[in-house]
Amino acid sequence: MEITLSVNGEERTSEVEPRRLLVHHLRDDLGLTGTNVGCDTTSCGACTVLLDGESVKSCTVLAVQADGHDVTTIEGLAATAAGDGDGDGSAGAPLHPMQQAFHAEHGLQCGFCTPGMVMAAVSLLDENPHPTEDEVRVGLEGNLCRCTGYHNIVRAVLAAAGEEVTA
């Protein structure tokens, strides 16, 4: 089937099998390997991307379901904040505030869960701009991290929300 997605601001038309998952389409057909696959059961959230601005686990969306929609991956996130419009996250675009917060608060270690975690966190703040710590924890329940113990991820999200971070 032929599908056209707006990926990080760029129209991408491809021929895909109906059973193709969005995550495989992004990684294998479009070469956007920032989005990772960590499980088989929609449990880990490593593949989280934004579909029309809302977080989805791209292992649980068929590529054809994204036909005609906007997809933002980690590669394009900084550009959405910088507003430079080309959507490729390049050309010295600054970090998105959430990326900056993860950096400042040491919210990542091995980096494998990070793209998905950052996208989930962006979506979380979009829905709830000033969450409590508990709301952040529950909001990120579907994104697993094995390195950080979540402590600094939670701090990063709170910091990105402009909350005072202690401890």
Partner: peptide, 20 residues
């Protein structure tokens, strides 16, 4: 000191074995 590893991992993601 914040990590020098981070900017790459945060913007384009790491290059894991499957990404090589």
């Amino acid at each position: 000191v914040v990590r020098v590893e981070d900017p790459r991992l945060l913007t384009v993601g790491g290059t894991y074995a499957a990404d090589v």
